[in-house]
Amino acid sequence: MHTSHSRLPGEVAFMVLIVAFSAFMLWASFNISRFESVSAAGVFPMVCTAAMLVTGLMSLRQSLKSRLVLESGETAWGQFVRKLTPPTLVQFTVLIVAYMLLLEVLGFVVSSYLFLLLSMQVLGSSRVGLNVLVSALVLACIFVIFQTAFSVVLPAGSLVGPYLPEFLK
C-alpha cells in the first residue's frame, strides 16, 4: 500500500493538513489553561498536540524526501484517483454518507434496504434479482436479531416512520 521509497499522490498535502490541524489543536489546548500550572487541565492535551505536531512534521519531511513515481503519461491527479479514490470507492462512499444522513429521516428499514441494494450494484454485484432478495433477507435477519436479542431501538424515520406498520418500527 505504501513504500518508504516512493510516495503516494496527495501525501504531502495530507501531511500538511495534519500538521496544520495539530498546530491548531495545540493552540486550542494552550487556551484551556495556558501555563497556569504544570498539572492543569490543559497540559496533557498540549503534550499530545505537541507530539502530533512534531511527528507530523517528521512525517511531512519523510514525504518530501520521497519521490512521486508516475507512470508514463499519468498525472499526479490521475494517480490519486486510481490509487486512492477510484470511481467505485467514491460512489460507495457517497452512498455511505447518504445512508448515514438519511438514517433518521427514512428510518432504519427503508434507508438500509436502499443502501444495501444500491451499494451491491455499485460494487459490482450485477444480478439485480439476487441483490433484491439478499438485501431483504439479510435486513430481515438483522432487524429481528437486533430488536429481539440485543434490544436495540432502531430509528423508525421521521418521514417514513408514521406510515410504517407497527412491527417495522
Binding site: S112, S119, L123, G124, S125, F150, V152, L154, P155
Partner: peptide, 20 residues
C-alpha cells in the same frame, strides 16, 4: 461470500452499532 454483498452488510451493522 462476494465482497459486493459483504461490505455493505458490515456497513449496516456498523451503523446500527454506533447508533445503539
Amino acid at each position: 461470500t462476494p465482497k459486493p454483498i459483504l461490505l455493505p452488510l458490515i456497513l449496516v451493522l456498523s451503523a446500527v452499532g454506533a447508533y445503539a
